[in-house]
Amino acid sequence: MGNMLFLASALIALVALGVSAIRFFRGPDTLDRVVAFDVITIISISLIAIIGFIMQRSVLIDVALVYALLSFLGVIIIAKYVERGL
């Protein structure tokens, strides 16, 4: 029962990932794509954590932490680059 609830929430998060990928492919500007990329990475962090919970591997939480750090740095660097060049 409880495991079914977690599976359902993982499925809904996967649907949200697909919905925000629409904006990633359609966005008219570079920064639209960066916003969509930010949302996609945040949803992916939740998905990595819940896959670790379903498979009972606590290592995947560390993977999610490193992924959050790298995506934050990536968004900051792309925004700086769009603003005035590196």
């Binding site: 029962m1 409880g2 609830l5 929430s9 993982a10 649907v15 949200a16 919905v19 925000s20 939740s46």
Partner: peptide, 21 residues
Amino acid sequence: AGGVVSLSGSLFLLLGALGVV
């Protein structure tokens, strides 16, 4: 209980993705 909380969080994620689109 954790599944219900997690399900509500995933609904917020879906709403945020819909807002982005």
